[in-house]
Design a protein around this nucleic acid. Structure first.
Lengths: 89, 89, 89, 89
DNA sequence: CGGCCGTCTAAGGATC
DNA sequence: GATCCTTAGACGGCCG
């Protein structure tokens, strides 16, 4: 038998599992809307940059490099932390 | 001569174009952080869904289909418009 | 050390890796030429269609829709398969 | 009245215009299939290149540069031809 | 870690 | 003929 979710004894229609599913779907859709909105905001900033005469792909590359650098700094700190714990500090 | 942005007469370092560029980069990075945070929130919801015994890929597909249906209504209207123009209406 | 391809011990110039690279580039360029030629052939057909009095954008849309319909049949089968697996069938 | 193609006096169904349209659609679809097949072939070559340890985006860039150079050579020859005709040669 | 999805770039078409 | 825009292909990130 294939029930929805874990509540094996619950009715499949109008039950708590259905409510739970609805909640999940709605929350994801809501979050995804906000996420898309931020994507549009970013696009707007790039449009503004282009209007100001900047080279947008170059700026994208620049931000990408900055993000990578930040990630590597993070990685270095994690390694440092590993060493510190290895040394009991 | 390769200047930054439109301000051809401005100094390349410390000028207004550099400030403008800095503003653009910082705004994009800020928005992108928020965007990534929302991505994590969505991931959390799916993790919760999985814990509740739901089939996550199926839920993803469900949400995808709901979004696509909305998009196709738009598309149909565009096609209808194309045909109307082809027929001189 | 930055070598070409996997052949860490090979000389960088005149080695087998260079030959391999040359082969790849030439094959891609050859295939791309044929691809561009087909694009021109398609363009010719549309030119003929226009000469015959047909509405080319509408024909393009028609072909696009036919392709999309075929793709959606595939997609539906994939979704069905997903659901079947989700239900353990 | 909106007829298909130029043959204003022909019947709209089963007429020569419908046959002509069908011919056009089928030829375009056929050519497009071959075009897509070549795209897949190219993709296969790149997959092979990747397996051999090459950096695929770099190879793409390389081919792009070569294509541009070829185009410029072509352009130079056209200009040369223009000059030759201008000089009656 | 290999494939898949969404996003970004770039090529091609429609429009003026 | 040039420009803008839309769409197909390539790249990066995410899931399985």
């Amino acid at each position: 038998m294939s029930d929805i979710g874990h509540n094996s004894g619950e009715p499949q229609t109008g039950g708590v599992a259905a409510d739970r599913l609805r909640s999940i779907v709605e929350r994801v859709e809501r979050l995804d809307q906000e996420r898309k909105a931020l994507g549009n905001d970013i696009k707007d900033v790039y449009t503004e940059a282009k209007s100001a005469g900047f080279d947008v792909p170059v700026i994208r590359k620049l931000i990408q490099i900055r993000a990578k650098d930040a990630a590597e700094v993070e990685e270095q700190e994690q390694i440092l932390d590993l060493y510190r714990r290895a040394l009991g500090m």
